[in-house]
Design a protein around this nucleic acid. Structure first.
Lengths: 205, 205
DNA sequence: TGTACATCAGTGAACGCGCGTTCACTGATGTAC
DNA sequence: TGTACATCAGTGAACGCGCGTTCACTGATGTAC
């Protein structure tokens, strides 16, 4: 996708990759532009050929994260097939799977302090991600009698919050805060109970 | 609680307070020992009379946070009175109220990267906090028929995750990530649906 | 095919900065007599 | 009450460090003729 050649070949992406690795390892705090440059085999000054600065580099890492995230969620959602319910549950599982598989991206997106309004592209891809979850919630809502139906944006916010909370509290190898349950089970059971509360699952499963 | 007098009077606590202010303002990243010292009207070196270093100061801020947090949660729980259900809901509300009222503490506790095992005192007070939520979940669980009752530690993990997720995603003034709903409503409705899913609330509320 | 030229990705040195931490010290406070 | 002494909280200077960023440059690559 990048233009080929010159000296390094594809420094821009190499820098993003290095940043992702460092952010995953040391957190957004520990990440430094200089070390990312070093890992890419390049002088810190070279970074400025491709990014406006440190924050811009993190923002690009986040942007790529949202891109992958959206793809993963969209794939899991699968246009609401075979059922709105199964699609919704798959989306929840995909959220956690993404957080586990792409921790550097996840941290860049949600813990780096980079605003989603850093650039129009970032805002756009972030809202695409949100849109998918909201659509899944909408599909689902149609199976709830209108008079007891919460707004579908609320449902998606609930699930997003639960998923994010599980990731932050129980899926990180943060020493000392480990749960007696695997995060996957925790999220799946939580979503299950929640959906039962919406009247979308039988009383006993 | 501190011994009185000498030069500053109560530098130790003044440093913790400054740290809390700075952490709230600039995040755990932006916090520096030197600036905390400056805000307390003191040389950076003076900090070392009271703390082992930067991390130790943050850990003390977190410790005080857990202390307040536990008190608040315990008060809300109110020994499960008048009912296990109402006590549980009050505990959830108290969680969010704490996060809003003591953002510096909250960040020190959950976002600063300080391990809960930094010191025995910290571990102790953190587990006290966890214990309260677990007890509330246990009381509640007794109203669920045993064969469809999830482990109470799981219930408390669900609620903790949901609450934390709401705080992180929707209760911060993080630019761009605002929800169409007040965090309080979001959490309360989420917990309501969840409890209904546990069979603890009537089908239509 | 060969030569002259333009481009521009990456260099390397330099900058000012604030950081966390150390150390020998000083001088206000508290205490013993 | 007054004096001599001990304590120890806070000072101030110094340290080495790595940071993000700038700048004039260089030299490999691509291109025009």
């Amino acid at each position: 996708m990048r233009k080929r050649g010159y000296h390094h070949g594809n420094l821009r992406q190499a820098l993003v990759d290095a940043a992702l690795r460092l952010i995953e390892e040391k957190g957004p705090t520990g990440f430094t532009l200089s070390e990312a440059a070093k890992q890419a085999g390049v002088t810190p000054a070279a970074v400025y050929r491709h990014f406006a600065g440190r924050e811009d580099l993190i923002a690009e890492a986040a942007r790529q994260g949202y891109e992958i995230f959206s793809d993963v969620m969209e794939y899991a959602y699968n246009d609401g097939q075979p059922t709105a319910l199964s699609a919704f549950e798959a989306t929840g599982r995909a959220y956690l799977a993404f957080a586990r598989k792409y921790p550097g991206h996840y941290i860049s997106m949600f813990e780096s302090g980079v605003s989603v309004n850093h650039s129009p592209e970032l805002a756009k891809v972030a809202s695409r991600a949100r849109g998918i979850l909201e659509r899944a919630a909408e599909d689902l809502s149609e199976h709830i009698p209108p008079e007891k139906r919460p707004p579908s944006t609320m449902v998606s916010a609930h699930i997003w919050a639960l998923s994010h909370g599980v990731v932050e509290l129980f899926a990180r190898n943060s020493p000392g805060t480990q749960s007696p349950f695997p995060p996957e089970d925790l999220l799946e059971s939580g979503i299950g109970i929640y959906l039962r509360g919406l009247g979308l699952l039988p009383k006993d499963s």
